[in-house]
Amino acid sequence: MKKFIIPLFLLISGSVFCQVAVGASPENNNRWTFGGGIGLGFGSNNYFNLSAAPRVGYRLTNDLEGGVLGSVSWQKSNAYSSTMFGAGPFLNYYIGRTFFVSAIYQHYFINYKDKLYDFKTNENEEALYLGGGYMQRIGNNSYLQLGLMYNVLWKKNSSIFSSGLVPNIGFVVGL
């Protein structure tokens, strides 16, 4: 089963993650942030993946943001189909609008069906991603984020994911 989840994990970790912060400019006192990300993947054996990751946050200070992140992913191929839901809190700290440090906890619910062997299973897994990266300003309050996260709860022989390392690319507006 782990081999079938690998493409899903790579798609989610490599997909562009867009975050939109609303009202985060100094002249506006609204501290709520909203955003999300989407992913789409195609591959051999009629592989198809669609994923979405909405988020809502609150700026605790000008440089510290906390909130809730959700994720959903559907994938299918000639050999299997899978649905994965995840939810949990996140915390981002921005350093001089040049670097960021992030912590994300996710609890995943996975529904998997192997079409070749008529096998179905439902699994749960927890992940605590810690990491950070670089932010490049691309507009007034817009930034491109390039980062790397690691799931500190990942265990080689018991995880549905093939690795604990997750690269990410993001876009933030309104910081």
Score class of each variant (00 low, 15 high):
Lys3Ser: 13
Phe4Ala: 10
Ile5Pro: 05
Ile6Glu: 15
Leu8Ser: 11
Leu11Asp: 06
Ser15Arg: 04
Gln19His: 13
Ala21Glu: 05
Pro26Ala: 03
Asn29Gly: 05
Gly35Ile: 01
Ile38Ser: 08
Leu40Tyr: 15
Phe42Tyr: 06
Leu50Gly: 04
Ser51Glu: 13
Val56Met: 14
Val56Pro: 01
Asp63Ser: 06
Asp63Tyr: 05
Asp63Asn: 13
Gly70Gln: 06
Ser73Met: 08
Trp74Ala: 13
Gln75Gly: 14
Lys76Gln: 14
Met84Phe: 12
Phe85Arg: 01
Gly86Ile: 04
Ala87Glu: 04
Gly88Phe: 05
Tyr93Thr: 00
Tyr94Pro: 00
Ile95Gly: 00
Phe100Glu: 00
Val101Cys: 05
Ile104Cys: 07
Tyr105Lys: 07
Phe109Arg: 15
Asn111Glu: 09
Asn111Lys: 14
Asp114Met: 08
Tyr117Gly: 08
Glu123Ala: 14
Asn124Trp: 12
Glu125Trp: 09
Leu130Val: 07
Gly132Lys: 03
Met135Ile: 01
Gln136Arg: 12
Asn141Glu: 11
Tyr143Val: 01
Gly147Phe: 06
Gly147Trp: 02
Met149Ser: 01
Met149Gln: 10
Tyr150Pro: 02
Asn151Ser: 04
Ser158Pro: 03
Ser162Leu: 09
Leu165Tyr: 13
Leu165Asp: 06
Phe171Val: 09
